[in-house]
């Protein structure tokens, strides 16, 4: 319910720039926003709880005890003191009891899994930015909210071709868009995680060729080149 099949969103900030974004984010409606807010709040709570339990477990074995006198502000000791206060509160005592009751071998993996669930990205988004005369930049959102998007810029003179290919993947055959880069053994797969379906890939492919090579025939253009590109665009892969 929170995600949809990968769909395409095209943005044209300027006549020579196009951004193709494929994401699993469904259209923003009020119920969806509310639901997302609730889910994110729950995830935040889950994360805090797990951290608290982990701290409680650590404090069980910790040789340090909270100092009696109030320490000066903004020091490591003051942080420990504040955490001690949290542990002494009602949820803190609950966390302590949970920490004491759970063996470490079970707590570790469970905490890791819960933390992963808390920071995992709900929606994946991958995009392709095409700048005529400069090149193209692929970007792919990280698996968690902590990681940054992985981007890769390919300058125009390095691009040998942009094309759609088919390959076996698992029990399926998928269409995918690739960029053939000059001087590299491997091709660059665009939208590598989402692998959108053929209609999306074809629209992006036409858009990229249109924007990058300007295949629309123009009177001023070099005639042969325009015709050549036009023919290649019209043909199916």
């Amino acid at each position: 319910m929170l995600t949809t099949a990968p769909h395409l969103h095209i943005r044209r900030p300027s006549p020579t720039t196009t951004e193709f974004t494929v994401s699993t984010l469904p259209p923003q409606t009020l119920p969806l926003r509310l639901l997302l807010a609730v889910v994110n709040l729950l995830r935040l709570l889950l994360g805090i709880t797990v951290l608290l339990v982990l701290y409680a477990k650590w404090s069980l074995y910790s040789p340090y005890t909270a100092p009696a006198s109030p320490p000066e502000a903004l020091s490591l000791a003051s942080l420990a003191n504040a955490l001690q206060h949290v542990l002494d509160s009602a949820p803190g005592r609950l966390a302590q009891r949970a920490a004491a009751g759970t063996p470490a071998w079970a707590l570790g993996p469970a905490a890791l899994a819960a933390l992963y669930a808390a920071v995992r990205r709900v929606h994946a988004a991958e995009s392709l930015l095409v700048l005529r005369g400069l090149g193209i930049q692929t970007s792919s959102s990280g698996a968690t909210v902590l990681g940054a998007a992985a981007t890769r810029f390919i300058p125009t003179e390095k691009i040998q071709d942009v094309l759609i290919n088919e390959a076996f993947r698992g029990f399926e055959v998928r269409h995918y868009l690739i960029v053939v880069v000059d001087g590299e053994e491997d091709v660059v797969v665009v939208f590598p995680k989402l692998l959108p379906r053929r209609d999306v890939v074809e629209r992006v492919w036409r858009g990229v060729r249109g924007c990058l090579f300007d295949v629309k025939p123009r009177p001023k253009d070099d005639d042969g080149q325009a015709r050549g590109n036009g023919r290649r665009t019209n043909g199916k892969i």
């Binding site: 088919e166 029990f171 399926e172 998928r174 269409h175 379906r197 053929r198 199916k236 892969i237």
Partner: peptide, 14 residues
């Protein structure tokens, strides 16, 4: 598991 409508048809050679 893999419904029919989720499978893209391949482009035909002319």
């Amino acid at each position: 598991w893999w419904p029919r409508d989720q499978i893209d048809t391949a482009a035909d050679w002319p």
